[in-house]
Each structure stands twice: as C-alpha cells, then as structure tokens.
Amino acid sequence: MALRGVEVDREWVGARASMVLTFAVAVLSVATGIANISSTPSGPLVQYVPELVQQTVGFTGALTGFLMLGSALGLRSGLRAAWTSTVVLLPVTAAQGLLQASVYSFPLVVLSTVSLPVVLLNRGRFTRDLDLTTTQLAAVVSLVGAQLYGTAGTYALREEFNNVQSLTDAYWYTIVTGSTVGYGDITPATDRAALFAISVLLVNVAAFAVALGVLLTPAIEARLSKALGKMTESQLDLLDDHILVLGYGELTEPILEELDERAEFLIVTLESERARLLSDRGYSVLTGDPSDEDVLRRAKISRARAVVVATNEDAQDALAILTARQLNPEVRIVAAATHRENVNKMRRAGADTVISPATIGGHLLVDSALGSEDSEAIANRLAGEDPDRR
C-alpha cells in the first residue's frame, strides 16, 4: 500500500500535473478576465495600486490567460523557456485575481497559488532548450519589427492622421491595418500618411503570413508523425513512470487492452505499418527495434516503471530483455515465453518474471479433465469473462 501511495503522489506532483494545472489556470484566467472586463476592481490591494493599473487589470486577465495557454503548450513539449514563463505568469494571475476581487477571481488566486510550487518542484522535468530555426527567428523578428515600424511611424505622423493622439492610438491603427480589419476610425489625412499606411499594410500582412506558416508547419509535421505511427521527441521527453511494451504479437493484444485502463504505456515495434495501426487506435507508439539501445533510450527506459515483453518470437524477446536490463538494472521486466523450454533462458537474459501461456493452459485443461471445478472459473477470470472480476 505504501508503494501505491508513492505512485499516486508522483502522479499528482509530476510533469503531467504541472501541465494540467497550468492549462487550468490559463482557462480560468481567460474566463475570469472576460467576466470582470466591465467590473470595477475592489480587492484588498486596490487602495495601494495606481489608478492606471486598476484600469488595466480589468481587461488584461484574459490576455494573461492566453499567454498561459502558450506556456502550457510549451510545457507539453518539455521546454525550459515555457517553465520559466509559467513561473513568472502564475504570480501575475494570482495578483490579477486579488485586484479583480469578484466571486469569480478567488478560485483563480487559489489555483495559481497551488500550481506554483508544483511547477517549481518539476523544474528538472523541463530541460529542452527553445531551439528556433532560422525561419522561426526571422518570423519573430519580422512580426515584432512590423509592429514597431507601424506604431512608431504612425505616432511620428500623428498630425497627418485623423484621431491619432497617443502611442496607444498608433498601435491600435497598426493592429487593425495589419489584420486587414480596417475599422475606419483612424484614417490618413495626407498623401504621405496614405503612402505610409500602404507600407504598414504590406509589411504587416507579410509578417503575419510568415509567422502563421512557421506556426502551422510544426503542427503539420506532428500530425504526419502520428499518421506514420511515430512520436515526436517532445512527447517522448515527457514520458515518466510508464510501462514499456517491447514488440507486438498475438500475445501482446490482450496486454494492451488491460493496460489501456490501468497505466500509461508506450509500445515499441519495428513494423511501421503495425505502428501506424496502433497509433490510429490511440496508443502511444515508437517505431524502432525493441532490442536497440538508442531506441530504448528514446523511450525513456531509465524512467520506466516496468517492461513487458510478449510476442511470438522468443529469441527476439530475449534480446530485448537483455538490452532493457543493461540500460536499467532496476526496472521490473515481465515476459511471456511462447515455448516452455525458453522460460529459463529469458530469466537468464534478465526477466524478473516469465510466464508460459502454453504451460498455464495445459495445467488448466488437465485440472478440468480430472474434475477440478475451479479451472473453468480461473480460465474465465483470466480471459476477462468473469462478471465478478475486479
């Protein structure tokens, strides 16, 4: 029971908990910001906060929530930058909740406060660097540069625009022009301003197009990887306390059905077509040789709870067991031997437990033939046909 308690605690405070809590804070922050967008701040800190901050906090909650959604997606990819942004944003969401101080904001304060130590505790789980490609860097620079160009230029030419009096007005005009919304509340009053407006439109549309393409490309690649039965490196990096199923065969199918309801697991198989079919069924699959050291390292065998090896090829299974034992001497390995004479060989290869389905079936059949009334009940329970099975 103590061991089971440890497993539950790890799940509650692990990397997955950090992602779930961050996502929950993000959704709650957006909802709270929308609910309080027209209300007047009345929290305990309002009298100590400048009026400008009070006016701002009413509508920035939703914006912070969307930033938190980005951080949650980054945590899913194991990014250290996402962990840093989450640690920074959680106190911000808590402070916004205090200042908003409505019946909707107090859950946000509590959830943000609870989430922060969990995220801090899992700092070592998010180690991937934000490795931006040249195209991604160009997209970020062009997008930021386009906004700066439009805002600075519009403000510098504010005398030649109708209704531009501040930097906020200039930025507003840049956004509505670049997004092609064009509300018409701000318009150029001279030819020079009109030419500048055209340049702002072209630059911003191009910058948005580049940024959109860069954002969609990784999503398309991830979708293709899933269609081909492959997992991305970011998904593999988040594996923890999982069960590795090495290989796939007739003996593996009932194991997958049992594990699907009880634990997180990853299937490692060399057959790409089989991997694609398993992925279509919603299983996590890594295409590769189950006896290859590099493949098992990518499958995070060092953090696995257990290893299950059960195909119809005892020789390949023994090699997979040997490799798994070398990479993680402490992991529990359970195997199924198709042929009874290979049970001891698999144990010598490193398996902790080896089960021979043929031997078990033979014993049950003999017991039943000799009049045992328990053998059929045992067989039904093993097959999952016992209605009282727990």
Rank of each mutant, 00 (worst) to 15 (best):
S302Q: 15
N163A: 15
A349G: 04
G97N: 07
V295A: 12
T32H: 11
R158A: 01
R223C: 00
T338I: 07
P117M: 00
L278Q: 03
P41C: 00
P387C: 06
G247D: 02
G213F: 02
V176P: 05
S112A: 15
L67I: 10
R348V: 14
D352L: 02
Y104R: 12
R340W: 07
A318P: 06
T359R: 12
H339V: 05
K226I: 00
A15L: 10
R274D: 04
A315N: 12
A209Q: 04
I37N: 07
A306D: 05
L286Q: 02
H363E: 09
G61Y: 00
V354R: 08
H242V: 01
L239C: 06
K230A: 08
A31G: 03
G61T: 01
V119M: 05
A24L: 14
T353V: 15
R298N: 09
A24M: 13
V88L: 14
A24S: 14
R347T: 08
E271D: 15
V214G: 02
T287Q: 14
T287M: 00
S39W: 05
P357K: 06
V203D: 02
A318C: 04
L167Q: 09
V27C: 12
E258D: 12
A336N: 03
S18P: 06
T353W: 09
L201C: 04
L239V: 10
D169L: 02
T32G: 04
T32A: 07
A209W: 07
Q165D: 13
E250M: 10
T323F: 07
S38H: 11
A2L: 12
E51W: 07
A72K: 08
L99A: 05
G229T: 03
A335P: 06
R192T: 13
N122Q: 13
R16S: 10
T311F: 01
A379N: 07
L296E: 09
F23R: 10
L364V: 05
G362E: 03
